Amino acid sequence: LTFRNSYSENIDSISELISSVYIAPIDSILLDETYGQQSSIIRGAITKAESNNNEFMFRSMSKVQTKRTINRHWVEWHRKFTLSFACLIFFFIGAPLGSIIRKGGMGMPIVVSVVLFIIYYILDNVGYKMTRDGVWIHWVGMWFSSFVLLPLGVFLTYKAMNDSVILNADAYLVFVKKIFFIREHRNYPVKEVIISPPVYSEVSMKIDGLNNDIDAYLKNYKSMGYKAYWFDEGQDLQFAVVRSKLEVILSSLSNSINGRVLDKAEEYPILISSLRPFKAGSPGAKILAYALPIGLVIRLVSLLFERRLNNDLLKVKKLNNELQLITDKL
C-alpha cells in the first residue's frame, strides 16, 4: 500500500511538472529568426526532403530491378524443365493426331500442328511475362502452358487408343443433325444381283411381332417419370428389341425387286439410338440423376426426343400396316 501511494504521488508530481513547462510553438521559433536565417532553414528543409524522396525512389527502383532479376533467374530455372516437359506433351498430342486425322493428306495435320504450336507459344509468353513482372508466382507462370496442354494430350491419347473420330467432319455433322432434329432418309435402290429375296409371309409375321412390341413399349414408356428415366433399365432393353426388329425387317425388304415395297421401306424413319447420354441404371446415369440441376435440364431436353420417338413408333405401325397390304398381294 505504501508503494502504491508513493507511486500515485510521483505520477501526480510529474504531471504537474510537465504542465508547468512552456513549449514554444514551432512557428514562433522560426519567426524569431531573421529573414535570411528563415530562408536558409526553409531551403535546407526542402533540400533534405527532396534528397529523402530521391533516395526512396532510388531504393524502390533498385528493389523492383532486383525483384525482376530474381524472377528472371527463376524463369530460367523453370525453363530447363518446362521445355523438356513440353516435348513430351507435344509427343502425346502429335502421335494421336497422326492416327486420328485420316483425311486431307499432309495439309490437315500441318494446319492442326501449326495452330497448336501458336496456342502453346501464346500461352508460354503470357506465363513468362506474368512471371517476369511478378504478377504470378514463378512456377504458375512458367508451367501455365503445360498445365493447359497436358489435359489435351491425355484426351487425344485416350481417344486415339479407342479409335475415336473426334476430328472427323462426318461425325460432327451427324451430331448437328441430331441437335437440330434434321432427319436422315433411308435409301433402298433396286439391286442388280439379289442373293436371298425376302419371303413376304415371314416378313408379315415379323411385322405383326414388331407391332406388338411397339404397343407394349408405348404402353409402358410413352411417358416416363424422372426416376424411371434414369433408373429403369427395361426401357433401354425393350427399345433395343423394337429397333433391332425394325432393322431386320427393312434389311430383308432391301433385297426386294418390287418398287412399291422399296418405296414404302424408304418412308420408315430412322429411330434414335437412345433417349439419354448414359445407359439407365449405370453409374453415370445415377450421378446425373442425383445432380438435380443438371439431371433436370437433361430430362427436360430429352422430352423433345421422347416425343419424337413416340411419333416415329406410331408412324412405323402405320407403315407396317400399309406394307402388309402391299406384301399380301405379292
Rank of each mutant, 00 (worst) to 15 (best):
L1F: 08
L1R: 14
R4E: 12
N5K: 14
S6N: 14
I11W: 05
S13M: 09
E16A: 13
Y22V: 14
D27C: 06
E33G: 04
I46S: 10
A49G: 06
F56M: 11
S60C: 03
S62I: 01
K63L: 12
R68T: 10
W74N: 10
V75H: 10
F81Y: 14
A95D: 08
A95R: 00
L97C: 09
I100C: 03
K103D: 14
M106S: 09
G107S: 11
S113E: 03
V114I: 15
L116K: 07
F117V: 12
Y120F: 15
K129C: 07
M130G: 11
M130R: 13
T131F: 00
D133P: 07
V140H: 04
S145I: 05
F147D: 09
A160N: 01
A160E: 05
N162S: 11
V174Q: 02
K178P: 03
I182P: 05
R183F: 07
E184G: 07
N187C: 10
Y188S: 06
V193Q: 04
S196E: 08
M205C: 06
L210H: 09
L218S: 04
Y226D: 06
Y229I: 08
G234K: 13
L237S: 08
Q238T: 13
V241S: 09
V241F: 00
S244V: 00
V248M: 14
L250E: 03
L250Y: 13
S251Q: 07
L253M: 08
N255L: 04
N258D: 12
N258F: 07
G259P: 03
G259Q: 15
K264G: 01
S273G: 06
S273Q: 11
S282F: 02
G284E: 07
G284M: 01
A285G: 02
I294Y: 02
F305I: 01
N321S: 10
E322G: 06
L323T: 06
L323A: 04
L325W: 01
I326L: 15
D328M: 13
